[in-house]
Design a binder for these strands. Structure first.
Lengths: 334, 334
DNA sequence: CCGAGGTCTGGAAACGTTTCGCCGAAACGT
DNA sequence: ACGTTTCGGCGAAACGTTTCCAGACCTCGG
């Protein structure tokens, strides 16, 4: 930069002004500067820039996901990237694999890099590190799950209402024995979805058959096993509600193995790519990762811009996608 | 940091040594420093650190994808993230949506942030900006597609061989009228897959029916339309080869609409999530995004470490996943 | 007892940028 | 013609860190 200044025969401050496109510099001087910069192959150094700059903005944001490879996270990531890009902000992403230790590490690294803000899918409910980051001046938005720190903004989905409505539909279609397969209860969303199931039964005046509630079903294989067991009961369920992506896949696999997919209703939580290719299509309670990501980024940028208001907690709704498997009639129905 | 130094009653240089865990500092002094840092809530600033540091490493790497939300990119991203994490490097990702202008912008922003290296899925074959970045000292690895700049390392997949083998299988199963549906010819992989199709026909001594080759089929709807047209031909194909993910979905949708999915063979390029839930399952020529990402990151880090050798071009093989749709027999077969 | 060599430690310079304070000149009003 | 404002431009200081260099202290062998 100094070289550019001397070559253009101007002061170093002028070069800075030209590079940043600031006003108050004669056109022909600016021209000379750009020419010299071009000639010398000068590249602006954003790291040094944000070091000295008054606002100390690094124009980078940290995104802590469960797993960058899973479709939900990927869509979220893209949505965040897009809204960030509108402001010239880049996103630094990391995966925790639900490991609080890795989450902790990522929060530390990101804050050490002076990201402008943090969007986190928290692994646990108690996150002292997030609070520390917030205390150190890095805004934080929690996504998909709440956190124990009351003061952070959150963007979540009304898991309960989604499952409740699904149960209502199944009941209306005549189903009286509805089973639930949920993920590990340590995961907040799994708990909520289970609660929604219980509420849904209560709302329709149905009885809750404990044998039809399977929790801590994690992954495809466990779901297959659990489904097999449920259908082998003396009085098997006529409808299944799955609380998670991979569980839905496992359930459906077993249903197909037993040739019961046209026979036993199934509603899953979270959309599956290409689920409408199946026969019957898998009906799901879908959340909108794009909306979630956009909302989270918007909230975060408000804070980055200095909004000091109280914590905001956005709750997005789910959408039911009827594809067939959830519309199969039960014995008590029409 | 200066505050920490004065509080611990030591010099600023000692604090730096302690923070970086460098040897040659008395344990009790180190203890005092860490205590003071703790008390003052001191956080190391990596940006300032890498500014002054001798190696000028920013421990960040740029990843330019087609679309962070698509499953292939997501898996690639995760693989890169993992190998980078082993070295304490974070990854900054951006999506181009196949737009050379956005790619150009991302390359510029990333280099302005002084990333240690760049992993790029290039949009076009001629990338002068990539060369500029390389010239400026930022190592570059191209992934999924080659680039016109000979000197950059690449990691690609043998698209031709994959499709060729698929055609061979179909021929062996008795298919004599095999159609091909490929993506936009501007995309290198689409070209290669088409070439593989032609080669495959030649290898098996089959004739190439121009009416059965559809190129520039982009997206689900176009694929549906094209499939409908192909099957409406006077002498329709008995097997279809799809050159892309979404095209495969469109083809299959139409096959199901016409109830021909058990009748017309289908092999797609690129795996689909949960493709084995379908009946028949969709057979695909799969690439391994994890292996690609790992390889690309490894290559890149070699360069970051100063390896000055000639450009290396890794070509990974595809794997055929037989799930049923590609195993349907043709009229000329057994 | 003294000097050489080693180990710790601290101050200052440097990294590449932005910003502050200041200056000279030109434009303006009286 | 002169004071005053305005404006473009300049050098130097600062951002938070690492690294160079030199100084202080200790130990040990001669």
């Amino acid at each position: 930069m100094r070289d550019v200044a001397t070559m253009a025969g101007v002061g170093i401050a002028t070069v800075s002004r030209v590079v940043n496109g600031k006003p108050g510099v004669t056109p022909d001087l600016a021209e000379k500067v750009t020419r010299a910069a071009e000639l010398l192959g000068y590249r602006h150094d954003m790291t040094a820039s944000s070091l000295r700059r008054a606002d100390r903005r690094t124009h980078t944001l940290g995104l802590i996901l469960e797993d960058a490879a899973n479709p939900f996270s990927a869509a979220l990531h893209r949505a965040v990237e897009d809204t960030a890009a509108e402001r010239g902000v880049l996103v630094l992403a990391g995966s925790t694999d639900e490991d609080p230790v890795r989450e902790r590490g990522l929060v530390r690294t990101f804050t050490a890099r002076r990201v402008d803000g943090l969007i986190v899918v928290p692994t646990g409910r108690t996150d002292t590190d997030l609070d520390a980051a917030r205390g150190a001046g890095t805004p934080v938005v929690c996504v998909d799950r709440p956190t124990s720190v009351r003061e952070v903004d959150t963007v979540t989905v009304d898991n309960r209402a989604g499952v409740r409505a699904a149960v209502g539909r199944l009941h209306a279609a005549g189903h009286r024995r509805i089973a639930f397969l949920g993920d590990l209860p340590t995961i907040w969303t799994a708990e909520e979805r289970h609660a929604g199931f219980v509420e849904g039964l209560a709302e329709t005046g149905s009885v809750l058959h404990p044998a039809l509630v399977r929790r801590a079903v994690h992954g495809v294989e466990a779901a297959q096993e659990a489904t097999r067991e449920l259908l082998a009961l003396p009085r098997p369920p006529t409808a299944l509600v799955s609380g998670q992506n991979l569980v839905t896949v496992g359930v459906r696999k077993t249903l197909q193995d037993l040739r019961r997919q046209h026979d036993v209703a199934l509603i899953g939580f979270d959309d599956l790519p290409f689920a409408d290719l199946l026969d019957p299509g898998i009906s799901v309670i879908a959340q909108d990762p794009v909306a979630i990501g956009r909302e989270a980024a918007t909230l975060l940028f408000d804070r980055v811009d200095g909004d000091p208001g109280p914590a905001r907690h956005r709750v997005l709704t789910t959408r039911y996608l009827a594809r067939g498997s959830g519309e199969l009639p039960g014995p008590g129905g029409v």
